[in-house]
Design a protein around this nucleic acid. Sequence first.
DNA 1: TTTTTATGAGACATTTATGTATCATAACCG
DNA 2: CGGTTATGATACATAAATGTCTCATAAAAA
Lengths: 188, 188
Amino acid sequence: MNTNDSRVSRSRARLIEAGKELLMKNPKASLKEVAEVAGVGRATLYRHFETREELILEIARECFKLTSQVLRPIYTDCKLSAREKVRRGLEALMPLADSYHFLLSLWNIAEGDLEVLAYYGQQMDDLTSLIEQAQKDGDIRKDLSIEWISSIIDAQVYSAWWLIGQGQASVEQAAGFAVTSLFEGINA
Amino acid sequence: MNTNDSRVSRSRARLIEAGKELLMKNPKASLKEVAEVAGVGRATLYRHFETREELILEIARECFKLTSQVLRPIYTDCKLSAREKVRRGLEALMPLADSYHFLLSLWNIAEGDLEVLAYYGQQMDDLTSLIEQAQKDGDIRKDLSIEWISSIIDAQVYSAWWLIGQGQASVEQAAGFAVTSLFEGINA
DNA sequence: TTTTTATGAGACATTTATGTATCATAACCG
DNA sequence: CGGTTATGATACATAAATGTCTCATAAAAA
């Protein structure tokens, strides 16, 4: 299969999009359903992805590529304070919240893959050193462990995804909420 | 089947425990696996739960009963301030974090059941009026929507579950982290 | 336009999960 | 202790998902 053929890239994109959407909501969804939603024949799905697991892993890799692509420029921008990086990162992740949620929701499968694990490790490292720096700079309190802080940053994205999905907030609103409550807390 | 028979209650308890553990990690886990982990014959599982869905719903109901049992006494205690109720509720939920995560992870199925939905609605109502009260009392900031606040309270429990599962914090530590970061935020 | 090739439709084999039924056994209850 | 009954093991039927293969067709590349 020639990657330059427009039919190939189109089918692939559709399958990944449909798979992300469906499997995220229902991890038991069949590949038949995925192909249907993608508007593509079932046989074509198997031409692109040898097995169900391979499809899931490819989607996971794609999700990490997306988040990396968005986060990297922010995290490596020397002009920004650590706190500002977290803030911008959080905002930038909002539109990708469904990719994020896919990874959470199918993590039991995705974590079995070396490439996915490498992406994950890299993003964790980036975030960890960011938090470390911010704590050193006195921007972020030191009585919370780094693991906890990165965990609740993840959780903010998750919350935002949930709220947006319920139709109870726009992307911009959710981003604002997330940044505020993450840094200032809910205390009056 | 006689509920008073000790064999019955034992089998049921084991099946629910095993199901919670397994299906939470892997929603595709088969009932054969669940029965094996429970140390119970597959046929016995079907004697207790007519279908796969019925098992999942029963576990969900059980999870809600657990959280209700823990939360109700706190929420209805008139001596406590609204803010204190949120704090104590959060701490009390920590040991039940896996029940909580089960519900999140299988929500697509659980939400289809009226009884489960009733439990959910009740807990949401309790939490909502609590937050409303706290905002009125000036304990919780008013520039965050109620939906967002309840959403990030959930998220704290989720984060705690994750961290505990990774072995990077004890239940007590996680509870402390959650309360601090929820109320004060991560600002230094 | 001509050639190449990805696709859709469908048939097919295989595996696996689901749910039902039976029967001997062992655990529980009175 | 003796009767009741839940259980385990097993066999069975059914349905559904997975993965492979073929062939005509349509769409892309040359």
